[in-house]
């Protein structure tokens, strides 16, 4: 068993198949430990399970503690989806998260690549300048962004929601780290073949860092999908709300109808859970990559 930092990759791929020091014989202690871990895991998902099960209940059953509804119903979903707002918010979130992710993947890796592979005066200063923005909390910028959006007429527009997140220092740093692993010879060879710099970056360097790109994409997407404070500030038109902002408004409106609030919450959660079920491996690996290198 090797001991490199690429443990991350193994973690995603292997399901604990390697023989390890502590994993030898089956002892009672082991069983207790496993059971506790398992119960802990079940407890962890209980809030999600409660939410889903309540969304399938009629109002009179809501305060019942049973997890399985006596008469399961989709009526709450029909009611919530009927007025079309949730669908709209879903599409808004999807569009915004997708566009932002594409932009970040493109620009962050471009900048990371330039800072890693090009030698020119000012490179170091630019790198430090970009990195220093990591120290500035988003919350500090929301007021200036709001004033900016107001004077440019960006309030209540998709662009207004997206513009602060079109590039990230985190992604730039992550990609720079990964481009370090791309050998310069590869790029030099392409240069001799007469490719221009853009082609070299796009068709030679980028394919070599796809795991990093997908890790970055997952992080950026998830971050934008769940983003709250900025969309809350910049939108006032309910047609432009993102799912989290819409859910807040919706929940405040409903107030007592907890089964409807749970339905709304489920609608915001189910898509990411589904995506996770299908791409579990990549997502976990991506999170580890982004977490460890970033």
């Amino acid at each position: 068993m090797t001991a490199t930092l690429d443990a991350a990759g193994r973690l995603g791929a292997g399901e604990g198949g390697t023989a390890r020091f502590f994993r030898t014989p089956i002892r009672p202690g082991r069983i207790v430990m496993w059971t506790l871990l398992f119960l802990g895991g079940i407890t962890m998902v209980m809030p999600i399970v409660f939410m889903l099960s309540t969304s399938l209940k009629y109002p009179h059953e809501v305060f019942d503690l049973s997890l399985i509804p006596q008469e399961p119903t989709l009526e709450n979903y029909i009611y919530v989806l009927e007025d079309g707002r949730f669908f709209r918010w879903f599409i808004n979130s999807l569009l915004i998260a997708t566009a932002t992710t594409l932009s970040c993947v493109f620009f962050d890796s471009l900048v990371g690549y330039v800072l890693c592979k090009f030698k020119f005066r000012g490179r170091y200063i630019i790198f430090i300048a970009i990195l220093s923005t990591l120290m500035i909390p988003t919350e500090m910028l929301v007021i200036p962004w709001y004033l900016m959006a107001q004077s440019f007429g960006w309030l209540d527009t998709y662009w207004g929601i997206m513009f602060p997140g079109m590039m990230t220092a985190f992604g730039t740093f992550l990609m720079k780290q990964f481009f370090e692993t791309v050998p310069d010879d590869f790029l030099e060879a392409a240069r001799i073949d007469g490719m221009n710099e853009f082609q070299i970056w796009w068709s030679i360097a980028m394919p070599l860092v796809t795991p990093a790109l997908s890790a970055l994409a997952i992080f950026i997407f998830l971050g934008n999908w769940t983003a709250f404070i900025w969309p809350l500030i910049v939108t006032t038109d309910s047609n432009l709300y993102t799912l989290p902002v819409g859910l807040t408004t919706f929940s405040v409106e409903q107030q007592i109808d907890w089964e409807l609030i749970m339905t709304g919450a489920s609608l915001a959660t189910i898509p990411t859970l589904l995506v996770f079920l299908f791409f579990q491996r990549y997502i976990i690996r991506g999170v580890v990559l982004a977490g460890l290198k970033g």
Partner: peptide, 25 residues
């Protein structure tokens, strides 16, 4: 080792939820 991936997924799942939705739950 037994059901390692499954248990790990159970612990990881809440990370993918939206804070707003879970705050209401």
């Amino acid at each position: 080792r037994f059901m390692h991936g499954f248990i790990r997924a159970l612990y990881f799942l809440p990370f993918l939820t939206t804070a707003v939705a879970m705050a209401w739950v």
